[in-house]
Amino acid sequence: MAGLGLDLPTFISQLISFLILLALLTFFGYKPIRAMLDQRSRKIKESMEREEATKKEFEQGQLTAQEQISKAREEGQGIITQATQIGGKLKEEARGEARQEAQAIVDRTRVELERERDKAIDDLRREFVDTSILAAEKVIRETLDKEKHRSLIEETLKGSVTFKEN
């Protein structure tokens, strides 16, 4: 075996060298690297979890905001309809009032007019009667007294339809 180069001192020396290498690499290489890899993977996991949580929160917030917006919209819609209704009612009321007032004005005017007219008719009639009486007096001064004559003419006037109609 010596021809092959096999000898114990070299073997032992190489064995020791290899064991030293194993120890060195384990303590200076693998352990810190493994720790670093673990730490990094933990950190990545953590940050991913955090990101997930933030995302969820954001989604939740978005959902709430959406809900609130839709609620507000609904509410606004309600308010608008209500306002429209009220407005309509108010308009209706105002219109009614205006109509009533106008009616009242018209009525009053008509009453006044009628009164004026009546008065005018009355006046006219009185004047006419007076004139008639005067004329009649002139004709028949002595035969008829004034009062009796008046009632007579009055009666005649009432009987006349055309005059009444006016």
């Binding site: 070299t10 020396s13 190489q14 060298s17 030293i20 690499l25 690297i33 670093m36």
Partner: peptide, 21 residues
């Protein structure tokens, strides 16, 4: 001479890992 070579490779490996970590 193989011992010296293996020592050199051990030094290289150790230096690499030491510098890296």
């Amino acid at each position: 001479n193989t011992m010296i070579a293996s020592w050199i490779s051990i030094l290289v490996l150790f230096g690499l890992f030491f510098a890296a970590t």
